[in-house]
Design a protein around this nucleic acid. Structure first.
Lengths: 200, 200
DNA sequence: GGCTTAACTTACCGATCGGTAAGGACAATA
DNA sequence: TATTGTCCTTACCGATCGGTAAGTTAAGCC
């Protein structure tokens, strides 16, 4: 799949924003990485905030697409949530940029002088919450209860994904590899356990 | 409890580092917040990296103290892990600075040109892992398996804590309040469910 | 009084930050 | 051939970055 020029620019920008954050990554650094001058990059995107915004909306489009794929498989409701979570987990483990970017956005979107309304994760989260409500075996739970469940699952997966560099330093490569092998199965177990908690 | 001058400096620095991150918070801004000049702040801590380091080690000392308190209550092993997690969750919900700082450290400690070995979370994590191993009802699980469990629980709690500002914007205050009310009970349920998964 | 030390101050430094202005190279179009 | 728009350049801008150097002020100690 050939990337357009613009997509290549965004891919590199995503990489650097994920690594160093909005403040840590300068437009000059990003441009240098691309073999451009800073002003050429600004020509394409206007300013730094817009560049960052485009990176994020491309990411949120990818997240939404991933969810849609699974929904169109028409799995049983219980499995659907599990597969969405697992797909998301695998995606974030292989593509750490996405995981880190989302986490940074959660941390920074308040402090950055953002005009209101840039909540790139909104659709994605709403979709997961509805899936969880449909997946509950008993009576349909409230949005609030489903949100609590979804967030615990998301957190469990996401937190682990971004912690890989730290964990390998603390516990070593061998232990971490064994942990990774166990992680997915335990994640599935938690999904089912919390779904049945939700029902009661 | 009267804070010493130095503790006040560190408290303010913690606040700003938590809000904006290492790169986003400048020493001039921190000093201004304290009513000092930038150079006065540098006088106390040498440079920015050292200031940040002191903030983090104070935090990790607090985390360790919190865990020790609970261990000294000599609860049954199963409850001990649950109490540690919940204490940690409550602490992070009331003091968001701690939660945000830890998250930022997980994201940044690789990119910052840190001299190796600044793993402020090491002791804290090792302690939790050992508690989880002791808490398992069956045969003592491997460190790797216990780490997977601890990390999922920690992630579930921690991720929710830092997401409060985003969630209130997406779902509104009322829903989020209801979610918070449910969250703790579901967290307890997940602890027990995953402990029994671990045993099998 | 003399001396030391801690806690600052003002005055800088070079580097880098995000961003603007103006114009050149070049391909497509009229 | 002339014109237009895209893409990119060099040359700047003022602000801010982290950090250094040197001097001042006040308190404690002998």
């Amino acid at each position: 799949m050939a990337l357009t020029t613009r997509e290549q620019l965004l891919a590199t920008a995503e990489q650097l924003f994920a690594e160093k954050g909005f403040y840590g990554a300068s437009i000059a650094t990003i441009a240098k990485e691309l073999g451009l001058t800073k002003q050429a990059l600004l020509h394409h995107f206007g300013n730094k905030e817009k560049l960052y915004g485009e990176v994020l909306s491309a990411l949120s489009a990818r997240l939404a697409a991933g969810i849609n794929n699974i929904r169109q498989q028409r799995l049983p409701p219980g499995e659907q949530l599990e597969e969405m979570l697992l797909a998301q987990y695998r995606e974030q483990m292989t593509n750490q940029n996405a995981a880190r970017l989302i986490m940074r956005e959660l941390l920074d979107n308040e402090a950055r002088a953002d005009q209101a309304g840039n909540w790139y994760l909104k659709d994605y989260l709403e979709e997961l919450v509805e899936t969880a409500r449909a997946a509950s075996p008993g009576a349909k739970p409230s949005r609030a209860a489903a949100l609590a469940l979804v967030y615990q699952l998301l957190g469990a997966a996401h937190y682990f994904a971004i912690s890989q560099p730290t964990l390998v330093n603390i516990f070593g490569k061998a232990t971490l590899n064994r942990t990774r092998q166990q992680f997915e199965a335990q994640l599935r177990a938690i999904v089912q356990a919390s779904l049945s908690t939700l029902a009661s």
